[in-house]
Amino acid sequence: GGFFSAMRVTMALMALAHVQTLMVNGPHRVWADARPHVLRRARTPASPQMVGAVGTIAALPTLYALMSVNEYCTHRWYQHEEFNRDHAFQRFCQRVAFLFRRRPLFKLDGRRNLIKIWGGGHVEHHAETYDDMSLKKDPRWRRSKAAASLDSDLFRGTAFTWQTTGLMTVQMLPSTLPVFMLLGFSFMQTLAVLLPGMLVHALVWNMLHPPMHGLP
């Protein structure tokens, strides 16, 4: 009888110790520790996607072509302010402005309420330039509104500003991203080509154009 009593006491103590372990560590940790450890092979990061030979060769000519098209659009519709005229795209923008901001489509006199933008002084720059590329400086011109609008610009509308460069960069995204995707470029790889290209474009323009008009 004494032996079995001792066994029962021992088993009771072991059960009590097990319950205390469960209360402290939780059942999942106990059973997890009891499972054999399995060595797992560490995952190796995927190798970066490389652009093929065709994409690498075609990247710069393609970017140049896209920049030429977008520069034409920026020069015509923004810098020369042709956006301000009454055409289909202007009317589309008017309807969008009416839809989201309730901007009136027509003025009180019945004329269309055109959306006007300022082209950064480019039109005024043309008005200030003689055929030999020199700039007007006579008193009559200096008193004009166009000349006064250029006085705050050191380069008098001859340079690509950060605003114009940013506008053209955003404008290029809808055409550049899908075209470069077809060439095998990822999104980040496309930006790695586009952004330096836009910066070089602006720097080269600003190094050449203002000095042509005798500006620093």
Rank of each mutant, 00 (worst) to 15 (best):
C73T: 14
A53P: 03
W118S: 14
Q49I: 10
F92E: 08
S144G: 06
Y78D: 00
I117K: 10
Q79N: 05
T129H: 00
E128Q: 15
L99R: 09
W141S: 06
F98G: 07
V96H: 00
P104D: 12
A147G: 06
H125K: 04
G119Q: 03
F89N: 08
F92S: 03
S134V: 07
W118C: 07
G121D: 04
V51L: 07
K145T: 10
R85V: 05
N84K: 10
L135N: 02
G52V: 09
K116H: 13
R140H: 00
A146G: 01
L63G: 03
T56E: 07
L99Q: 09
A53G: 03
Y64R: 15
A53Y: 06
A147H: 14
P48M: 07
I57H: 02
L60H: 06
A88D: 11
F83L: 12
R95I: 09
N113I: 06
M67H: 11
Q94T: 05
T129C: 07
K107E: 13
A148G: 01
H87E: 12
A65H: 03
A97P: 01
I117V: 14
K145W: 04
N113T: 09
P139W: 01
G110W: 07
S134I: 06
Y130G: 03
K136M: 14
E82Q: 12
W77V: 02
Q94M: 15
C93L: 13
W141K: 03
E81L: 04
W77G: 00
F92T: 13
H87L: 05
A148H: 12
E124L: 01
Y72G: 11
P45F: 04
K107R: 15
